[in-house]
Computed example of a mutant assay.
Amino acid sequence: MSPGNYDGVVCFGGVDWWYHNRGHYDLQMMREFSARMPVLYINSIGMRVPRVGEGAMFVKRVTRKLKSLSRGLVRVRKNFGVFSPVFGPGRLGEIVAPFVPGQIRRAARRMGIRNPLVWVACPPGVRFLDALDPAALVYQRTDRFEAFAGVDPEFISACNERLLRDADLTLYCSSLLLDEEREKTPHPAFVDHGVDFDTFERAGLEARDPADVASIPRPRAGFVGGIDAHTFDPELFLELARRMDDVQFVLVGGCSLPEDWCTLPNVHLLGRKPYDEVARYMAASDVLLMPWNKSDWVRACNPVKLKEYLAVGRPIVSTDFHELASYAELVRTASDAEGFEREIRAALAKPFDPAPGRERVRSATWTAHAERVLELLAKSGVHSLSSPTTNR
């Protein structure tokens, strides 16, 4: 692919705008890009086929996908359009795939995009690259996608290999993945997650409890994020909550675990909250947690909530993972429930100084990281034809 000039971005997103936390890397980057040029965000076309055996979760996933499809193209803000093409994984995808590029081109034209930079955060989007004829390609390699639970690892690996080969810029959040694949892609770069620093710092300083947290006694240990088996360790968490029945555990986020996975009286499952509110939920905790499992996915992760936790300014206890080495002096680590209990009690027993953590991430804003991506593209000969807009 020979890079050229582009007049907007078509992003094959890794999530669905309507149903997922808007703190995700691709959504945040597209928000920033839309201040400079038109953006068309394609809701995730999926990496795995929902299974009937998932029970209520299967019905939930299918229902929300149908609702997403019914919305068509929606301009959610100036220069930012969200679109769900008629597509799906598995057999349905094979049938309708030839019609997807036309759907996307029409939606892009309505956004004023005719020479798109295509940004891929969902590897199966690679199948539409030739038909879209992009001016340039950015591959967001922010996770080990082929290790995601339920995907066809051979298919996702094949998508990954082509994207690595053809991308004008491949973005990494994990130095582990970058080191593994540096020789496979012509323009790799480490540009990790940003943070809406002012929002999260302000929440930490103001410390106003949301209404559904105010009545929960202290001390509180909080987790904000997806409660999903491919990242979250339910066995570790349940053992921890049983050991610490004098602590209230507040979990905020969508959950794909069985509905009855946790019935402990000191665990409060508050569900998914709008992105604009999550900082207040973090600030309502006395200590913040990342109880990850030990999967290949987690080993190569770099969760966005780490910088958000640091900006809010509360003690952090986490399972160890590769990228955490860069924050070793700012985060307590543990490998089992006993270790988590020990570190949580130590954090609660002494005054905490949030200043070092906040200073570490103060300049790591999403705006700064988006500007870094634009600089890297320009160095590769890829330039925007659009002028910045006032879009904030």
Rank of each mutant, 00 (worst) to 15 (best):
L236R: 06
E341K: 05
V382W: 04
Y309E: 00
R182I: 11
D179I: 00
R48N: 03
A368F: 04
P258N: 05
N43I: 10
R165N: 12
S363H: 12
Y19N: 14
W18L: 13
N266Y: 06
P89H: 03
G8V: 09
A229Q: 14
R162K: 06
D296K: 13
T185R: 05
I95A: 14
E359C: 09
M30L: 11
N115W: 01
V382E: 07
P354T: 09
D179L: 02
R127H: 12
V118K: 04
I344M: 11
E341Q: 11
M57R: 15
A241M: 10
P186K: 08
L376A: 09
L129N: 05
R182L: 14
P124C: 05
V287K: 09
F128K: 06
R64A: 00
I316T: 09
F223Y: 15
R280L: 01
C262Y: 07
S34Y: 06
E338S: 08
P116L: 05
M244E: 14
V191S: 01
I95Y: 12
L376P: 02
R51C: 01
E146Q: 14
P291W: 13
E259P: 01
N5Q: 11
S387L: 13
P3L: 10
P98I: 12
C173E: 02
E206M: 09
V120N: 07
A135H: 04
R182Y: 12
K67S: 11
R48E: 08
K307R: 12
A347I: 08
N391H: 13
A214H: 05
P50W: 03
S215Y: 02
V312Y: 06
F58D: 01
T390H: 14
N79H: 15
F128G: 03
P303R: 05
H187F: 10
R202N: 06
D7M: 09
H268F: 09
A355H: 07
I227G: 10
A167L: 06
A334P: 07
F99Q: 07
L169A: 01
A355G: 13
S2R: 14
G14I: 00
C159E: 00
V39G: 09
C255M: 06
E371A: 13
I227V: 15
Y139P: 04
F128H: 14
T365E: 00
V15C: 12
Y6N: 00
N115I: 00
P85G: 07
F190W: 14
Y327G: 00
Y19H: 15
L288D: 05
P3T: 04
A189D: 06
T263H: 11
W119S: 12
D130V: 09
G339K: 01
